[in-house]
Design a protein around this nucleic acid. Structure first.
Lengths: 203, 203
DNA sequence: CATCTGCATTGATGTATGATAAGATCGGTA
DNA sequence: TACCGATCTTATCATACATCAATGCAGATG
C-alpha cells in the first residue's frame, strides 16, 4: 500500500529478519515473502477491535503498537507493547476463530507486515527453521506471561514497576506513563507516587 | 514404579488419551509409549523445586498437582492447578534450560506420566497429530494466561473469584480455599470476606 | 504570542485488601 | 471420648492503592 518504495524497503527489512534471526534458508524465502503483505498505519489507527475475529498477525517493522482491553467502566488495560521486531496478535482469536476481547492500535506511526491466519501453518511446512522459531516465540511468550502473573499476584506496584523498566528499558522513555500504569495494573496517579518515592530514596 | 499393575493401567489410560484426544494414529503409538515413564507420588511430594532445571513435563493421570512460587517473605503464589488429564511443567525452564523459579508438588496423591525434555520434539516428528495437539495446548495456554492477566490488572477480587469458579467448577470444591486465594492473588481472609458478601447478596 | 490539549504531579479523602489475632469447625487419631 | 492440627471465619486495625479535584507544564496549533 501507500508508497511502493516504502513497501520494498520494508519487505526487504523483514527478509533480513527471516534470514538473520529466524534462520530461514535462502531457497525458502521467496514462497514465504509471497504470502505476506505490508501496511503503514498512523498513530491511533486500529488493527484489531473488540468483537472482531482477529484475521492477521502483525510484525512491527518500525513504530510501536499496543494491545489492550477496555472494561465496562471504559478503562483501558494494557496487555502488551509491540515495538520494532515484535510480533503481535490475539493468538487466541486467530487460532480458535473467536471474537477478540482486545484492541490493537498504534502508539506511533508504524509500518507492519501482515500475516493471514494460514501463514504460520504454511510457513512451518515450507521451512523447518520457521517452525522452530515460531515455537521459540510461543514458548518465550508463555514464559513472559507466567512471570508477569507471578508479579501481579505476588508483588506490589513498586516491584512491578522496577521489573518493567528492567525488562523494557527502551520502552520506558518512549511511552506515556499512563500507559505503563495501565500495563502494571495501577492508576497513573499511583505510578507517579511510586516514582516519587523511588526518587526520594535514590540519587 | 511401585506396583506394576498400577503402571500398566496408568499407561493404558494415557494411551487412550493419545488416541481419543490427541488423535495419534495407531501405528505411532508404540514409539511414543516407549519414551515415557510413570510415577506415583503422594500428597506433598515435589516434582520440581525452585533452582532446579525442570527436566520433565508431567501429565496427570489421577490426583491433583500445583505449580507455585514462594516469595522472599515465604508466601506462596499459585500459578497453576493441574487435575486429571492436564499437562504441567515449567515450560520456560525446560525449553530454555534455565533454573526454575517455581515448585510443583502434589495436592492429592497422584499418578503422573513423565516426559523428558526431548519428548515433545521427538513425538512431534513421529506423529503430526501430536505436533498439532501440542501446538493447540500452547495456544490455549497463552490464551488462558492472557485472560488471567487481563483480570489481574482490570478486575477486583470478587470478579476474579467468580471467573475462577466459572472456569474451574470442579476444582472449586476440591482444593482448600487458601489455595484459591493464592491463585487469585489475595489472602485467605479476603477471600472469606468476598464469599460472605456474595452469600449475602444471593440465596 | 496566546491558547489549547494531553500528560504528569500533588493533595485530600475513600475503599479494598492486608496483617494480626482470636474464635469456630471438623476430621483424624491417641 | 478427648485432643490436635488444619482450615475457615470474624473482628479490629493498618496500609496500599483508587478516586476526585486542582495545578503546572510542554508541545501543538491558531
Amino acid at each position: 500500500m501507500d508508497h511502493p518504495d516504502f513497501k520494498n524497503t520494508a519487505i526487504s527489512s523483514f527478509e533480513k529478519y527471516l534470514q538473520d534471526k529466524v534462520l530461514v534458508k535462502q531457497e525458502h524465502l521467496p514462497p514465504l515473502l509471497e504470502m505476506i503483505s505490508f501496511k503503514s498505519i498512523q498513530k491511533q489507527e486500529f488493527l484489531l477491535s473488540k468483537g472482531d475475529v482477529c484475521e492477521h498477525a502483525f510484525f512491527v517493522l518500525s513504530g510501536l503498537l499496543r494491545m489492550y482491553s477496555i472494561d465496562k467502566n471504559g478503562k483501558e488495560h494494557l496487555l502488551q507493547f509491540a515495538p520494532e521486531n515484535w510480533f503481535v496478535s490475539d493468538r487466541g482469536s486467530i487460532y480458535f476463530s473467536q471474537p477478540s476481547n482486545y484492541f490493537i492500535d498504534a502508539i506511533e506511526d508504524s509500518m507492519v507486515i501482515m500475516f493471514d491466519r494460514s501463514f504460520t501453518e504454511k510457513a512451518s511446512s515450507i521451512s523447518p527453521e520457521f517452525r522452530n522459531y515460531n515455537e521459540y516465540l510461543l514458548q518465550n511468550h508463555v514464559r513472559q506471561l507466567q512471570n508477569r502473573i507471578n508479579l501481579l499476584i505476588g508483588a506490589d506496584a513498586e516491584k512491578r514497576y522496577l521489573d518493567f523498566i528492567n525488562q523494557y528499558p527502551d520502552l520506558f522513555g518512549r511511552v506515556p506513563q499512563w500507559m505503563i500504569a495501565s500495563y502494571l495494573g495501577i492508576t497513573p496517579e499511583s505510578l507517579s507516587r511510586v516514582r516519587k518515592a523511588l526518587h526520594k530514596r535514590n540519587p
